[in-house]
Design a protein around this nucleic acid. Structure first.
Lengths: 214, 214, 214, 214
DNA sequence: CATGAATGAGCATTCATTCAT
DNA sequence: AATGAATGAATGCTCATTCAT
């Protein structure tokens, strides 16, 4: 089999092949969920196909059957994780109408996601900081490269929009966006978790960013 | 051999033993440098003793001779990396006299260090985000726990001091410190490197933080 | 895989699973036979998994697949060796009806086993005198401890029974049993093999013991 | 250096050379004692040159300097151990005048030696059952081969002498000697140690052998 | 004589991957 | 579609041995 990440959905011809694809798709989903659980529990370094297989209750060979490679699996998993967090946050942000409200919602939703989908977030961190492309480039250097990351895109848009509408002062958008993203990510990556709860952090960060953007 | 990390520097008694220790110390230093290079080049996951040995131009056995364990090597390396960045930054910060100046210098120096000691910074990231304690706790959850991290300690101190002296407004110190740290770290971890150069980022961040702290 | 030594024989349900288990069981048997051959040929100290694998004509990894550990393999092998010699001897002894006949058969069968299953006997010696428990206690100190060794148990029983029935005189049973066992073992462990053949040794030993027990 | 086991003592020329040889001899003695201790403590399999060096308080290299080989060391150690037990036993035996008394003393002294020089005895066992000649022949097959073992020689002599003088009945001397040797060795190699103390074992064994030889 | 530094081979073990069934 | 069996490469580590000092 082996699927390079392209979605080969085809609305027509959903007979036998569709059924098989459906089973295969479900298996892949199951494997991906097991991989998330594994990364959360034992971390990237110790995550082997057999550890994932154990958690999925299947044989190792079956993972190799459904993903061409360990790398292939990790890529699919990364897409999956990025998609789900992006969808969660963007859905909430797009319900708001002013740049200020959108920005606050962006921060709030980003942090809320970390709390609600804790395991997925840990898995995401473990992949981003450990996996590398075949060209040996770490994902953390690649992640929001160019305009590939719709989340950072949205944040840029909000900030630019707020400046145009006179809601925000004139700051460097790239730096401000990066600072906000850093402040959000840092919550998961530091020991502040033990001192400040997510809600307080969210409120205070919105406050600080409110002042910084004017 | 194996060295428990104690600093056995002793200016007196530098006879035979001192000479021998010197050779051993030089080798350990060399191995640590090779480890930094390896982590920078191929990442934590692929970093094996033989890869480090290859870059150091020595046999694998020699690493085992100078470090009791792969873990021992990584711990020494981590100490080394933390110490050097901490020293670099604190030295500059402590030359300043007002909280505001200290804060700006903190940001500036932190970012400058990333630029000057790029490989060391990558190595640090690779270890912190990949290595785990024997109890399976990732270092990134442990790193600035309590007041173990003198860098975060200094940042807290600066902020509290500034508030007491009326230079800074009344914000949540934990959250502000975490945000600043996040903003600093994020520069290395994102693609902003390609868009904004370090100096600009540093200037703009100082500006934004200046407004946020009042 | 790894098998904890439990006998999972189950005459019913010999469907797919039974077939697969059969293959695995055969492999384990083959590995154990190769281990016996290896111990016999090169001794415990030089016996490595790769030496065993070479003799079995398989890869080292496959041994690790079928046994959780080198220790696990050695334990299974030890059980196997003890069982087979015990069964061989006890089967013959229990056919006899008087203590005197039982004792003679015990000696005869013990020595006969050494001749017939020479390699197995060497392997047993190599393990018992070289392997140690995780607590560092050599097996030879542990072997017939308490009443764990059914062979020594039987010998005690025969001697006590003979004394009760008046066939044997009043000697110290522990010492007599130990002497007989020593006389049997010593045949394999000394150069007498070259001077006296097994049958003569057996006959003469029975004679001497006959006089010693009266 | 390396010495193949020949004693190069030379009463003349005991100037510088003699002094050096004396030091070297002392070092060899020290290494051999450390080896005995090591074998007793951790067994043959785990006995490495560095373990021996640690116990001797010297460097590993020094062992290699004084013995050409690990094998060479073990050979010297074996000679040493055999000599000391042989001397101990023969000295006592030769003080007696009748075969019967000599035989009893042989048994008594053999067992006594095990009690007094426990560590040396364990070391002897560990070597005999683990080490092999370059031709892969285990020492336990070689030990009392031919007439090399003066202890077994003496035992044969006693038994033959006793038969000639009419003190002993007509038994197979080889088998009787082997049985006695087995009974002596077995005490150390079994769990009887926990049940019967050495003195009782010695007395009872003398008794049994007395009856067996008539 | 003696050391500490260094090597290279060998060890048990884990792992991603392949393949017959 | 799925399994369990199997491989071969790689890993961290230990060890006997060598050698410059």
């Amino acid at each position: 089999m082996s699927n390079n990440g392209e979605n080969m959905e085809n609305p027509i011809n959903k007979n036998e092949k569709g059924k098989q694809s459906f089973i295969a798709e479900a298996r892949r989903e199951q494997i991906i969920e097991a991989a998330i659980q594994t990364l959360d529990e034992i971390g990237y370094v110790k995550t082997s196909l057999s550890q994932i297989a154990k958690r999925a209750g299947i044989s190792t060979g079956l993972i190799s059957y459904h993903f061409s490679d360990k790398n292939d699996l990790m890529n699919h998993l990364l897409m999956n994780l990025l998609e789900s967090s992006t969808n969660y946050i963007l859905e909430k942000v797009r319900k708001e109408d002013t740049p200020k409200k959108k920005l606050n919602t962006f921060i709030m939703a980003s942090l809320a996601y970390q709390g609600i989908y804790h395991a997925r977030n840990i898995a995401l961190i473990e992949i981003i900081f450990n996996a590398r492309t075949p060209d040996n480039i770490p994902y953390y250097k690649l992640a929001d490269s160019d305009d590939k990351d719709p989340l950072m895109d949205e944040l840029y848009q909000i900030l630019r929009d707020g400046q145009e509408k006179g809601e925000f002062r004139a700051f460097n958008v790239d730096v401000m966006a990066n600072m906000i993203q850093g402040a959000i990510s840092e919550y998961m990556l530091s020991a502040i978790t033990k001192k400040v709860d997510l809600e307080t952090y969210s409120d205070e960060l919105i406050d600080i960013v409110g002042i910084a953007t004017k």
